[in-house]
Design a protein around this nucleic acid. Structure first.
Length: 256
DNA sequence: ATGGTTGGGGACCAA
């Protein structure tokens, strides 16, 4: 079973790159963040032509998440349950794979802007709402997306420079640990004990060429799936293209 | 400093 997650930073701009990824890797499931696409404009037919169905929840200008899959699916959620949110940042569904049901949860975590911002309060509220939900959904589950959290210093190109900013703060890292304590494992770190594994590089100051990145995109697996985790690949070639997203797609392979 | 959206210029958001 092959899973891809990607913050596309506009599905409209990245559409052809995504089609290329699907043709190249034939993933079973693709989770997208920052589609910036209203539901009426979602390119459903592009993916149907390749044998994939789409579920999505979008809005004008910002946010927007989607799951594209060639597997049978049911029980779609377009919000974190019991959390009122104007911003379209969460979608989940159960897919059928080899007679198993796997819950796919796709989140675009808030950025938070700065530690003293109202947006940082919102980020914490959002994650706390997610925590309440995943505590009830912690077997046969995959939680993925743009977490906007670099869990440890090794996940940041220059921890000292980032001290006191969002994405690397102790508050966020403790929330990430709380997620793991809900019975989830960071699949990248499980399979790669040492390498930094950056997934995002700033568009500015030639950050990609200089490898000034962060690891903020993740796929967490419920602990009962640990023995099935086989490979995690960061598709950083897509960060080298003309008009790239600032995030690389990430790909997890499980074998059941 | 860069890129996307929106709207038709500049502001806002991103990390």
């Amino acid at each position: 079973m092959k899973i891809i997650s990607w913050n596309v930073n506009s599905l409209k701009i990245r559409h052809d790159q995504l089609i290329d990824i699907i043709n190249k890797y034939s993933p079973d499931v693709i989770s997208l963040q920052e589609t910036k696409t209203q539901d009426d404009n979602f390119p459903t037919q592009s993916f149907l032509d390749l044998g994939y169905e789409s579920i999505f929840t979008g809005q004008k200008t910002f946010n927007g998440v989607a799951i594209i899959t060639k597997l049978p699916y049911q029980n779609v959620l377009l919000n974190i349950p019991n959390f009122h949110d104007e911003q379209k940042r969460f979608i989940s569904t159960e897919v059928d794979f080899n007679k198993q049901k796997i819950l796919i949860m796709n989140g675009y975590f808030p950025n938070g802007q700065s530690l003293d911002s109202d947006k940082f309060i919102y980020k914490q509220s959002w994650i706390n709402a997610l925590l309440a939900f995943i505590k009830t959904k912690n077997t046969n589950s995959l939680l993925m997306g743009d977490f906007n959290i670099a869990p440890n210093d090794v996940d940041c190109h220059d921890p000292d420079k980032w001290t006191g900013t969002v994405l690397t703060s102790d508050i966020e890292r403790n929330l990430f640990k709380e997620i793991e304590e809900c019975n989830f494992t960071d699949s990248y770190r499980h399979l790669n004990k040492i390498e930094p594994g950056f997934t995002w590089w700033d568009y500015r100051m030639a950050a990609f060429r200089r490898n000034l990145g962060l690891r903020i995109d993740h796929i967490l697996a419920s602990n009962n799936l640990i023995n099935f985790l086989k490979d995690f690949t960061i598709l950083s070639d897509y960060r080298k293209l003309e008009r790239p997203s600032d995030h690389a797609p990430i790909m997890l392979t499980l074998s059941f």
